[in-house]
Nucleic acid binder design. Sequence first.
DNA 1: CAAATAGTGTCTTTGAGACACTATCGT
DNA 2: ACGATAGTGTCTCAAAGACACTATTTG
Lengths: 224, 224
Amino acid sequence: MTEEEFLAAYDASAYPRPSVAVDAVLFTIRDDALQVLLTRRQAHPFAGLLSLPGAFVGPEETLDGAAQRALREKAGLQDIFLEQLYTWGDPGRDPRLRVISVSYYALVPEDRIGPLPEGTALYPAHALPTPLAFDHAGIIRLGLERLRGKVSYTDIAFSLVPEEFTLPQLQRVHELLLGQPLYKANFRKKIAGRIEETGKFTSGGKHRPSRIYRKRALPAEPLL
Amino acid sequence: MTEEEFLAAYDASAYPRPSVAVDAVLFTIRDDALQVLLTRRQAHPFAGLLSLPGAFVGPEETLDGAAQRALREKAGLQDIFLEQLYTWGDPGRDPRLRVISVSYYALVPEDRIGPLPEGTALYPAHALPTPLAFDHAGIIRLGLERLRGKVSYTDIAFSLVPEEFTLPQLQRVHELLLGQPLYKANFRKKIAGRIEETGKFTSGGKHRPSRIYRKRALPAEPLL
DNA sequence: CAAATAGTGTCTTTGAGACACTATCGT
DNA sequence: ACGATAGTGTCTCAAAGACACTATTTG
C-alpha cells in the first residue's frame, strides 16, 4: 500500500482521528526550591487530581503557539523560555479519546509570575502530590531530567533568575537543579564568560553586599 | 473557558482534526559516508521529490510502534535503534491537510540493510539532493545535529557498526559523525571501557590484522 | 625489506575539584 | 570586634590533546 492509498483509506475511514494537545511543565524557583505549576482538575477524568496546564492545538495554530497560549491562559505568562520536550501518544493515556500530547518545558523567574487563577498553584518539584492526572508525572520527570542534563552546559539557569541577579543567587539555582552543593570559586570561574557587571550592589543584608550581574548579551566565544 | 468546555466545543466543531504521522530519519554508514534513507514520492504533493519514510499513526498504535512499522514497510528493518527527535506541526507544512509529524531518527549498521524497494535508496547525508519534500530537509538537519551532539558522550556510534567490529572501523564512524579526524590513541583510551575483545582478528588485508571487538554488555561503571 | 595499517607510551595542556584565605557589610 | 556572607588565589588531579614510536601482516 502506498502512502497515498493509505491516506485515502485513512481519510475515508470511520476511525476517529487523534486530538492533538500540548502540555507545559512550567518551572520556577520559589522558597529556595524548584517548583512546578499545576492546576486542579474539575471534571472527569481524574477530577480532583493535579495536572499540567495544557491546551488543544487550534486548527491554525503552531505547536509552540499553543504552548504559549496555554501558559498565557493558565498563568498569565508571556515571552518566556519554552522548549519542546517529548511527544506522548500511547493509546489510552486519556480515557476519553485518543490524545497525542506534545509536551514542553518552560522556565521563568519567580518575579515574573503574577497572581494565579483559582485552582492553579506552584508545587515543589521534588515532593509532588501523588498521583497526578494522566501521564503527567512522567512528563514532569522527563522535564526534570532534561533540566538537570542541560544546566551544566547551557545557559538555561539564567531563565530561572531575574534579569539582574547576584552570583550567590545564580549558584543556588544551579545547586537546586543539580541537587548538590557547588564550590563557589569553581562555579564563578565557569560562568565568568557568560555574565557582565551592572555596577550595582545589593544592600540591606547584615553582611558584605554582593555585585549584581546580568547575562552577557553576546556569547563570549567567537566562532572558531 | 474550562478545558472540558473547550473539549466539548472542539469535539463538536467543524474543524478537521489534524492527522498524526511519524517520519523516520534512518542513518547508516555506507561507502565510507553517512547516508540517509529516502523514498521518491509518486503522488502530489511534491511528486518526484525525495522524502523521509513515514506513516500515519493507526488508532491503536503507539508512536514508537508507528515509526517501527514505517521502517519495516519501507526498508524491511526490525529491532533497530530508534529515538524520538522532534514534533513538527506548523499549519501548512503539508498542503493537503493539517499533519502533525512526530519525527524519529534511527541507526542501523549497513550489513542489516537488505534490498530496498523500488524508489527507495540511500543518499549521502552531507550532499543531499535539493529540494526535499515537505520540511524533511529540516528534519534531517536536526537529526544530524542530534547525532553529532550525542556521539561523544553516548554509545550511539555502536548502533552504526556490526555486532563485531574493529576499532579502526568504530573510530571512522566517530570521525564521519563529527566531521573531523581523531587521534587513534586518545580514541582508544576513551572507549576502552565500553568494548570487549572477541579474540578474533581480521585477515586478508595487506597489513597487520586488527582485533575484533564487540560492545561490552553491561556498563562498566557501577552506580556511584 | 618496503608498504601499509594496527596498536601503544608518554609528554603537554586544560579544566574540574577542593580548600584556604581575604573582603566588607550590619550591629 | 564579631557574625555573616561575598569574593579570590592556588594546589591537586584527571582527562583530553598531540605526537612519536613499535608491531604485524602481504608481496
